[in-house]
Design a protein around this nucleic acid. Structure first.
Length: 467
RNA sequence: GGUGCGAUACCCAAGUGGCCUAAGGGGGCGGUCUGCAAAACCGCUUUUCAUCGGUUCGAAUCCGAUUCGCACCUCCA
């Protein structure tokens, strides 16, 4: 299994800390709003990574956090809590907001056939773990208190910014924002707030430094170490997390333990909307339910994501999504036909196995999903393979692709349409036989109005729901 | 101002020194089948990889310049 590691900027052979086992932490959603399809692209990438690791023979322990304490918005470390803002705008409590959007998030994940992580941990359930970690940093001399807040001092460690390859002297902190005057170094960041210029925070906890709430980065360090240990294999997220969030996570985690924290850093690229990235803060964004209401299946979006490499920007457009939908529907149609032709389930023959191997090789080479998908199509169209072999190979591939191919309806079992619809269909068949084509076409039009296409297959006419 | 990344045929998108006269999908066109359609199947849409120059026996792939686009240095997947 080969993976691109952001830390080394190279594709490396993956070597786990514990043989045959992978510990993987993924930055989860901040639940103050719906996830948009750009967010979801990253979770699809992580799901594909996990499935591929399992195919490669590893047992994966997958941990994801839910940021329900809210990251801040606006200027520097002293902004307004997004959850507070959302709560104020909707008139609900911050706890209600978090619960509502957490539920919505997992509904989207389910629709996209993303396997639920082994551990899903909420920040608000782990405040004591964060406090303990901050205490440890304080004892190690990595913190200072200023203006009521506890800061992490980046000058207390030798290699701050190594993931992002930040050149500290060239950075213009404050080029776009005002620097917090309490900071000794502009890149220092808050571990614990007791002093916010926004009063009336609903979420506060007691701590050795006073009543307040944790900074943005400490939750991922505290929870990942709690569930995966102080040294684990893979940490995932979106590329935007590299220069600040992951950089600070590394700083505080390695300062606390004094050793390497994570071996492999994997980042998913952005989904572009037109020519710009999709973002929550810009106000307008597309969610999965928006696509579903427009008549797309969530899996059309999953397929769309698979057509591009996870480390390349992918441009979203409805034209591209239409293409993905056509391709996926055609694939389901072919699987459906194979299901009715396949005779017995046995070990696939050599020809099919060659495709399966090519598929796995593409996936295990830094997740070459687009190439893997092309292997699937070539296999499907290979006339030298039996239907049984094709079906077995397709299922093997779908264990990673996650397109729910096995749920394609078999033509044999297909019973689309009500009794009345089927009676009409039979009447059309009779009319055709009697060469009453006028009547036959009338019935076909009527069925179309009812939402079905009529398909004349070698084994007789069938109905297909118009999507 | 600094730092990364990208530009591939009608569209999306792989490929990163010879197996590339560029995978796969979508769309379009033509054909087979059909009473006609739809579906299915077959073929075409492809000597071409932003531009210019260089390295090399050989470049979409490496180097340099140019143009355009994106991202990050503020929260963001």
């Amino acid at each position: 299994m080969k993976l691109y590691n952001t830390m080394t900027r190279r594709i490396e052979e993956f070597v786990p800390i514990v043989p045959a086992h992978v510990s993987m932490y993924c930055c989860g959603p901040t639940v103050y709003n719906y996830a948009h399809i750009g967010n979801l692209r990253t979770y699809i990438f992580e799901d594909i990574l996990k499935r591929t690791l399992e195919r490669a023979g590893y047992t994966v322990r997958h941990v994801m956090n839910i940021t329900d304490v809210g990251h801040l918005t606006g200027d520097g470390d002293d902004g307004e809590d997004k959850m507070e803002k959302s709560a104020r705008e909707t008139g609900k409590s911050v706890w209600d907001i978090a619960a509502f959007y957490t539920k919505a998030f997992f509904r989207d994940e389910e629709a996209l056939n993303i396997i639920r992580p082994d551990v899903v941990c909420k920040a608000t359930d782990h405040i004591q773990d964060m406090i303990a970690l901050i205490k440890r940093l304080e004892d190690g001399g990595h913190t200072y208190t200023s203006g009521g807040n506890v800061y992490f001092s980046i000058d207390s460690i030798p290699d701050y910014g190594k993931l992002a390859r930040l050149n500290l002297s060239d950075l213009k902190s404050g080029a776009r924002i005002e620097v917090d005057s309490n900071k000794k170094n502009p890149k220092d960041f808050v571990l614990w707030f007791t002093n916010s210029k926004f009063q009336g925070q609903a979420m506060t906890w007691d701590s050795p430094w006073g009543v307040g709430y944790p900074g943005w980065h400490i939750e991922c360090s505290a929870m990942s170490m709690k569930y995966l240990g102080e040294h684990f294999d893979i940490h995932c997220g979106g590329i935007d997390a590299i220069p600040v969030h992951h950089t600070n996570e590394i700083a505080q985690s390695e300062a606390a333990t004094g050793k390497t924290w994570v071996n492999y850093w994997c980042h998913g690229e952005f989904l572009l909307m037109g020519n710009a990235k999709m973002s929550k803060s810009s106000g307008s964004f597309v969610t999965l339910p928006v696509l579903e209401e427009a008549g797309y299946n969530a899996l059309d979006y999953r397929y769309f994501c698979l057509t591009g490499h996870y480390r390349s920007q992918l441009r979203f457009s409805y034209e591209a999504l239409d293409a993905a939908r056509s391709a996926r529907q055609s694939l389901m149609e072919k699987i459906s036909a194979l299901k009715s032709e396949a005779t017995e389930s046995k070990d696939p023959g050599e020809g099919a196995k060659a495709y399966m191997t090519a598929f796995d090789e593409a996936m295990e080479n830094d997740l070459g999903a687009p190439q893997a998908l092309s292997v699937l199509w070539k296999m499907i169209k290979d006339s030298t393979l039996s239907s049984s072999d094709k079906l077995a190979a397709a299922y093997h591939m779908d264990a990673i692709l996650g397109l729910r191919l096995s749920e394609a309806e078999s033509r044999k079992e297909e019973t689309v349409g009500s009794a009345d619809d089927l009676r009409l269909l039979a009447e059309r068949t009779a009319a055709k036989k009697a060469k009453d084509f006028k009547r036959a076409d009338e019935i076909r039009d009527e069925l179309k109005k009812r939402g079905y296409n009529v398909k004349d297959t070698p084994s007789g006419a069938i109905l297909e729901r118009i999507v």
